[in-house]
Simulated assay, not measured.
Amino acid sequence: MNKWLKTILFLVGSAILTRFIPFSSLFRNLDTMIHEFGHALVTLLLSGKVLRIELYADHSGVTYSSMLTPGRSILVSLAGYVTASLFAWLLFYLYRKGRHMWGLGIMTGVALVSLLFYVRGEFGMLWLTGFSALNVVIMIFGARIAKFYYLLLAFLTLEESVVSAMYVGLMSWTQPSRAGDAANLAQQTFLPALFWGTLFALFALWCAKGALTLFFRKESTTRPSKSRGLRGRNV
């Protein structure tokens, strides 16, 4: 079966199955956090100023910034979906390397930085506080379930990174002015929202394919062969 088709089918199945996990909806804000943190990080790297980040219960968010030239604003608008997709891939890479505790530490670090410096609003601050506290508890006391908890976060983040990118891609076709970052990029460039929305969707799928390839890759079963030397005999 084609790898792209496998990726799409697995994502659809995973999205359906994870809906049955209690409270899984709350963890879907992780992708939103990473998305908005990506905007903020690139803003800071380009010498801009992050005013605040808002996270909402419907899994949406917004980053307010200033002091950016038009050219730099393009990079900031690109950063959200690109960062979220690459981060989902990173989580599976760390899992593959047996570094899931590192992944939990990175997620917790981003949450704490966001909480201390950027996120305002009751829901966002409450969510970040609870998420960070739960991660710390699991890293310290929950070694037996840490891997399963990490995989849940990884799959939810992967799903949301693709679903949100596909959604903005669809909106760029049907309602371009409401296509979020794609609409912002259309205003800043000569390219339409349709181009940017499609680009986000394709990039998210490409990252998802890479992430799932890492997850399903089989360990090498090849063992080094042993050679037997022959002793010479005197005749």
Rank of each mutant, 00 (worst) to 15 (best):
R178M: 09
W173A: 14
G180V: 09
Y149M: 00
G169M: 08
T174S: 08
A146E: 08
Q187K: 12
L151A: 07
A154T: 13
D181Y: 13
L158T: 05
T189M: 00
L134N: 03
R144A: 04
V137M: 10
T157P: 05
W173M: 15
S172W: 08
Q187D: 14
K147M: 02
L153E: 06
L185F: 11
F155G: 00
Q188Y: 10
Q187P: 00
L191W: 14
A154K: 11
S172R: 11
F148Q: 04
M171W: 06
V163I: 14
Q175D: 14
G169N: 07
A183V: 06
Y149H: 01
R178C: 05
Q187T: 05
W173N: 09
Q187G: 14
R178W: 06
L158A: 01
L158P: 05
I140H: 08
T189N: 01
L153C: 06
F141W: 08
S161G: 15
S161R: 12
A193C: 04
I140D: 05
F148R: 09
Q175C: 13
L185K: 06
L153V: 10
L151D: 04
D181M: 10
F190P: 09
Y149L: 03
G142A: 09
Q187F: 05
L134W: 07
Y149A: 01
A154V: 13
N184Y: 06
M171V: 05
L134T: 14
L191D: 12
L158C: 03
S177H: 12
P192I: 06
A165W: 10
A133I: 13
A133Q: 09
K147A: 12
A182T: 07
L151H: 04
A179E: 11
L158K: 00
A146M: 03
V162K: 00
E160N: 03
A193T: 03
V136K: 10
L194M: 13
F155R: 04
R144L: 02
E159S: 04
N184V: 12
V168G: 02
A133L: 15
W173I: 14
Y149R: 01
S172E: 08
W173F: 15
D181P: 13
L194V: 13
L156F: 01
P176I: 13
Y150F: 15
A179H: 07
L152D: 04
K147F: 05
I140M: 12
A146T: 03
Q188D: 03
E160L: 03
F148H: 02
T189F: 01
A183F: 04
L191Q: 09
V162N: 02
L156V: 02
F190S: 15
L153W: 05
L151N: 04
Q187C: 01
M171A: 08
Q175S: 14
A133P: 04
V163H: 11
I140L: 13
L185Q: 08
F141Y: 10
A182F: 07
N184Q: 13
L152Y: 07
A146Q: 03
T157R: 01
L158I: 04
T189G: 02
M171G: 00
L185M: 11
E159I: 15
Y150C: 07
